Simulated scan of single mutants.
Amino acid sequence: MKIEHIALYVKDLETARNFFVKYLGAKSNEGYHNLKTSFRSYFLSFDDGARLEIMNKPEMPDFPKEFARTGYAHIAFSVGSKEKVDALTAELKVDGYEVVSGPRTTGDGYYESCIVAIEGNQIEITI
């Protein structure tokens, strides 16, 4: 068994799509638009076969996202090396994204950083 894909609702579909393509190497499909419901989505594919669906419906509320809450906490991306974690974290910081932790080695041995990147949602960058 494997996870087929993870889905994330966003308010700004194009900004979210561009983030994953630019910084994390995602490849995007052409998108889907249901004219009846105004639902839109993109499937983003990554080199290892993982897929992320980003979705939007215009009338959705956008509630604050506390870091310590129930539900999904973050999406983690492995970039392959400590140097790549450092470089991508620095690039994201320069581009205005909030670095909330790291780069650092955690108590359980991960080398990682955590960025607030998509509308208050966290992206973790690991080796």
Rank of each mutant, 00 (worst) to 15 (best):
R51Q: 15
Y110E: 03
I118G: 06
Y111T: 11
Y72S: 11
E91L: 13
N29T: 09
T15Q: 10
H33F: 15
T106Q: 01
S28K: 08
S41T: 15
E14D: 13
T15G: 11
G107R: 06
I54K: 00
F43M: 11
G107K: 01
S38P: 10
I115C: 04
V21D: 05
D108F: 14
Q122H: 11
T37H: 14
L88M: 12
Y42E: 06
E112W: 01
A68H: 13
T70S: 10
K82P: 04
E91Y: 04
K27C: 12
E59A: 09
E83P: 00
A50Q: 13
D48G: 02
G102F: 12
L52K: 03
N29C: 14
F63L: 14
Y111M: 02
V116P: 06
G80A: 08
I75R: 02
F46C: 06
A50E: 08
Y97K: 10
L92G: 00
S113T: 08
T126A: 03
Y72C: 13
V99S: 06
Y42C: 10
G102V: 03
E119N: 11
Y111G: 04
T70K: 11
F77I: 07
K84V: 00
H33Y: 12
K93G: 09
S78P: 02
G107V: 04
L88H: 03
V79G: 00
K22G: 10
S113C: 03
E112C: 04
E59M: 13
I115S: 05
E59D: 15
Y42T: 06
I125G: 00
E124V: 04
E53Q: 07
T106C: 05
K84H: 02
F39T: 12
F20Q: 11
Q122L: 15
L24M: 08
F43E: 13
K84L: 00
E53S: 02
F20V: 07
G109M: 00
I115P: 05
P58D: 06
S101W: 07
K82Y: 10
I123A: 05
R40Y: 09
E119C: 05
A90Y: 07
V85T: 00
F43I: 12
F63Y: 14
A117C: 10
P64V: 06
A26F: 12
Y23E: 14
E98N: 09
R17F: 10
A87S: 04
F19Y: 15
I54Q: 04
F39C: 13
I115E: 04
A117L: 03
Y110W: 09
E30I: 15
G120R: 06
Y32F: 15
N121K: 13
P58F: 00
F77Y: 06
T126E: 10
A26Y: 09
T126D: 09
F67Q: 11
P103D: 00
V116H: 01
T126Y: 11
L88P: 06
S81M: 01
Y97A: 03
D47I: 09
G80H: 02
S38C: 10
P103K: 03
I125R: 01
I127D: 05
L92M: 12
H74T: 01
E83V: 00
R17P: 07
N29R: 09
A68V: 11
F77V: 02
D108H: 11
G107W: 05
K84S: 01
G25E: 01
Y23R: 13
G49W: 03
E124K: 00
Q122S: 09
E59V: 08
L52T: 02
E124A: 12
G71R: 08
L44S: 00
S101N: 12
D108A: 03
V99Q: 01
